[in-house]
Design a binder for these strands. Structure first.
Lengths: 364, 364
DNA sequence: GCGCATTCAGAAAGCGCTTTCTGGTGTACG
DNA sequence: CGTACACCAGAAAGCGCTTTCTGAATGCGC
């Protein structure tokens, strides 16, 4: 308190009334308005009625002092926070970027701030971020991006999430996470892939290959299973050597396509489990003089914004990415309805574009 | 304190020792370890020496109770926060996504959480977000994305930022913001565009058009100025009707290219001020049967990851987007060196790809 | 006109931490 | 053997808010 004296001393030559160093606190506002702390708080939060003249004095002094409440103090005192956490694999992946856009739109509508974390596909980091977001008392935690089918990982993630939920935290996921009892938005990966398979069969293809990411990712295994099922139902084989596994990225797609050609495989149609991988595959084919769709048809999954601008535009299974983000955020923000976790299924729609065509008569 | 009794009462039938409803607090850890609050805090933060046996007891009970510190309480008590705010126009724009990736990498290295806000190019929202981040006592605020050349906006943004900085907040920007006294990472837009212009002139082009975003964006005006200067230096005209302004997005690029053709203009070379616009333009040309580069050469700016996968791959001015994100985050985290704002300039490098070629002899 | 319900402002008790300040040991030194 | 000094654990004072609790006015009914 001796400092207060000093402050006004040094301050009398400084700018008008701005405290030279420290933040403006609610206390300052109350003092300037000549009311108590409690009253100032009530006015600013509209918590309860306050006589009009006091009300206006508080508002005026808050404005003139450029008061900003300390969100940490508010969070601490009211045990509620105004931010949500979102964990994804990589913001720069167009799939996540599109979903994140939807998430942020809905968050903004609710006045929420989004804390975004990228795990760069490191499961350990995912668990770590959950802990950080828990520490921040995030209102909700959103897990965007495929789960891993890995017992140990599920266990440690669950161990972080469970106490968080028990103390009132909301959790919602996009994509399937086995064994996580949480609200979820589930793109119908299996069904979408099945229908894509059907559509490609209808075009006349019988020689398929698949470029895939790590099968431990639920998204990968679901899409793979759906596609394989479509072929199986039609009695069309999908030999193991026609399934090439690589990183779940553009470069992975490039590498997988290159590997496929290097193996001497010449399918008439290639399915990349994500558009991002398909983009890489497309370039790999181009670099090696394999024309799409004349020499090989190519299809992806997701309908990320760029695929319509590729040459040729990519056949894919369209998912409403932005809407998915909005819905998962919405789920997390809405009051939980009882003990059961809510599930929202999102259907994918096969969109045939110029990257797929009937196979050439000779089959090459 | 009467509750404590009740708690152990209700707790004796419940799960092992987990408090049924509330968070585990440092108090709980201290009690379980049989030490004082202060000691527990010191152990967990390594603030000062603590006798080994006490140390271990604290660590053990923290682990067994799955204690997570309340970040708000920490922030309040220590007046320092562990999160930084990032404001961009739109996460789903590949340019921002790439920069954001770099930002998050560096943030993660420093154990910082990133609060990401998208303004969707609404200046008012930008100011609003600064206020929110100020309330959150973010360690630093990063403004990613072009500034506006708009006096009123600058004034109100400055009014939010100034008190924030005065109370110890760091601010760093990517792109030029007139009149903001802050640390900055500045891509050399003008110089890059100048050199791109030179390179295109060297290919033999003399008939140019430019597809541009709103000129109030500093990034746009800088690139436009640099490009125009290169042409002027070579005595090549750039008539107004060859400059088409549209939204700063992929769709804007599409619309601008369509408009250019609709005007009956037939330049031999088109410069889109960003790759994102160039992507749209490329599709517009394709849709209208204008071949790139046979009928018209097309160049962009930024070198976003996708452009190498387009057909044809796009000539552009490459910027190290990820690195730019890392550097702006680094600037914000590093101790300010005196009163002066630090500037880091980032040079762009012209990358000629297949989307540009010498003009056809006849000039169409 | 008096008692009681009803408003509404202020006092004060936390929220869960960090960080002084205080005081009790143990060791080294005169 | 007593004093000085480290060293380190605990007590307690906040950090800036929200929210109960308290109490002083006011308005109303009978």
């Amino acid at each position: 308190m001796t400092e207060a004296a000093e402050e006004s001393r040094t301050g009398d030559r400084a700018s008008d009334r701005a405290p030279d160093r420290a933040y403006v606190t609610l206390q300052d506002v109350a003092r300037e308005a000549g009311v108590s702390l409690a009253t100032a708080s009530r006015v600013l939060n509209g918590t309860s009625q306050v006589r009009t003249d006091l009300r206006e004095r508080v508002l005026a002094s808050a404005a003139s002092l450029r008061y900003t409440p300390n969100a940490h103090a508010q969070a601490l005192a009211s045990a509620s926070s105004t931010s949500v956490g979102v964990i994804c694999h990589d913001v720069s992946d167009p799939y996540f970027a599109a979903v994140a856009r939807g998430v942020m739109t809905t968050a903004a509508e609710h006045g929420m701030l989004v804390m975004l974390a990228s795990t760069f596909r490191d499961p350990a980091r995912e668990v770590e971020y959950v802990a950080m977001l828990r520490a921040q008392r995030a209102r909700a935690i959103l897990l965007i991006g495929s789960g891993f089918e890995d017992r140990e990982w599920e266990r440690s993630l669950g161990a972080e999430l469970e106490p968080y939920q028990r103390t009132g935290g909301r959790v919602a996921v996009l994509s399937r996470h086995r064994s996580l009892k949480v609200d979820a938005v589930l793109p119908q990966n299996r069904e979408g892939a099945y229908e894509l398979g059907r559509a490609l069969l209808d075009l006349g293809h019988r020689e398929f290959a698949v470029l895939t990411g790590p099968r431990a990712l639920t998204t990968v295994s679901d899409r793979l299973a759906g596609f394989a099922e479509a072929l199986a139902d039609a009695g069309v084989p999908l030999p193991d050597e026609r399934i090439v596994e690589a990183a779940f990225t553009r470069d992975g797609g490039y590498a997988a396509a290159a590997e496929l050609l290097a193996r001497g495989e010449r399918p008439t149609c290639v399915f990349a489990v994500t558009d991002v991988m398909a983009v890489g595959a497309l370039t790999a084919f181009r670099d090696r003089g394999v024309r799409v769709p004349e020499d090989v048809s190519l299809a992806g999954f997701d309908d990320i914004p760029i695929v319509g601008d590729l040459t040729p535009p990519l056949t894919t299974v369209a998912l409403p990415l932005g809407e998915m983000g909005e819905r998962v955020m919405g789920l997390a923000l809405r009051e939980p309805a009882g003990r059961r976790s809510r599930i929202e299924r999102i259907a994918g729609e096969v969109v045939l574009r110029a990257s797929t065509a009937p196979p050439r008569a000779a089959g090459r």
